[in-house]
C-alpha cells in the first residue's frame, strides 16, 4: 500500500464522502449522497493496526528477563498454543511410529466432532476410527478424571488399544479368508508388485549392460583392426607410387 496518509483512504471513505457532500459552494443544488453513505452511517469500520498484548498460551508461566536493562523480546508476538495432549501424543507416536502411516480423516462437517465423543466409555467412539488419537484422549481422560498418573494411564490406554487392534486385524484376516473361500481374489500384494518392478529394472539394466559391453568390444576390435590395416595401406600406397 502507498505510504503516508493515503494509507488511510480506504478506512476513511465515509468521512471523505460526507465532507465532499457538505461542500458549501452550491448549497441549494440537488445533490443526493450515493446510497452507501446513508447505509453505512451507523456501521463504522473496526480499528486497524493496533497491536494488543497477545493471549499467553504457554502452560508454564512466561520467564521475563531479570535485568531491567534488557527489554523483554517479542512481547507483542503471538505466543505458541500448547495443549496438554501434545506431550502424550509425542510419546505415543514415538513408541508407535507406524501408527502415523495409517490414513487419517482431517475434515469435519459441523465442527462439533469433539462433543460427540465420551472418553469415559472406552477407546471405541462412534464416527471415529481407532487411532493413536484415541489412546491420547483416553489417557488424558484417565489422568484428569480417573486420577491416574501419566504412566499408569498410558499403560491402561495402550493395552486397550492393542486389544482392539488385534481384534481388528483378526477380523480383517478372517473376512479375507472367507472371501477367498467364496472365490474372491485380491490381485497381487504390494510386495509382489514391488518385486516385479524391481525385476523389471534389473532386466532393463542387464539389457543395457549387454549392449554397452558389446559396443565396447566392437570399439576395441575396430581399434585393433585399424592398427593392422595401417601398414598395409601404406604398403599399397608405396606400391602404387
Amino acid at each position: 500500500m502507498a505510504r503516508g496518509p493515503s494509507r488511510l483512504l480506504a478506512s476513511r471513505v465515509h468521512q471523505t464522502a460526507t465532507e465532499h457532500l457538505s461542500s458549501t459552494i452550491y448549497p441549494n443544488t440537488y445533490n443526493p449522497p450515493p446510497p452507501w453513505v446513508n447505509a453505512l452511517a451507523n456501521i463504522p469500520p473496526s480499528e486497524i493496526w493496533t497491536r494488543p498484548y497477545p493471549e499467553q498460551h504457554s502452560l508454564t508461566p512466561l520467564h521475563l528477563p531479570k535485568s531491567r536493562k534488557t527489554p523483554p523480546k517479542s512481547l507483542y508476538r503471538p505466543t505458541k498454543i500448547a495443549h496438554p495432549e501434545d506431550r502424550l501424543r509425542k510419546d505415543f507416536y514415538g513408541d508407535h511410529p507406524w501408527e502415523l502411516a495409517r490414513p487419517k480423516l482431517l475434515m469435519e462437517i459441523d465442527g462439533k466432532d469433539a462433543r460427540y465423543y465420551d472418553w469415559s466409555k472406552g477407546m471405541r467412539q462412534k464416527g471415529m476410527k481407532l487411532s493413536g488419537e484415541s489412546v491420547v484422549q483416553r489417557q488424558l481422560w484417565l489422568m484428569e478424571v480417573g486420577g491416574m498418573t501419566k504412566k499408569q494411564a498410558y499403560d491402561k490406554a495402550r493395552k486397550e488399544f492393542y486389544q482392539l487392534r488385534r481384534f481388528e486385524e483378526t477380523e480383517a484376516r478372517i473376512a479375507q479368508e472367507e472371501a477367498r473361500a467364496y472365490g474372491a481374489y485380491f490381485g497381487k500384494t504390494v510386495t509382489q508388485v514391488g518385486m516385479e518392478l524391481e525385476d523389471k529394472e534389473y532386466n532393463a539394466w542387464l539389457k543395457w549392460a549387454g549392449e554397452e559391453i558389446e559396443g565396447q568390444e566392437m570399439e576395441r576390435q575396430a581399434a585393433y583392426a585399424n592398427d593392422i590395416d595401417l601398414p598395409e595401406v601404406e604398403g599399397e600406397e608405396v606400391v602404387d607410387a
Binding site: R51, P54, H57, Y76, P78, T79, I81
Partner: peptide, 12 residues
C-alpha cells in the same frame, strides 16, 4: 503482517 496481530490468536 504485524498489522494483523489483533486478529491472531496464537501460533501452532
Amino acid at each position: 503482517n504485524p498489522a494483523n496481530s489483533r486478529y491472531i490468536y496464537g501460533q501452532r
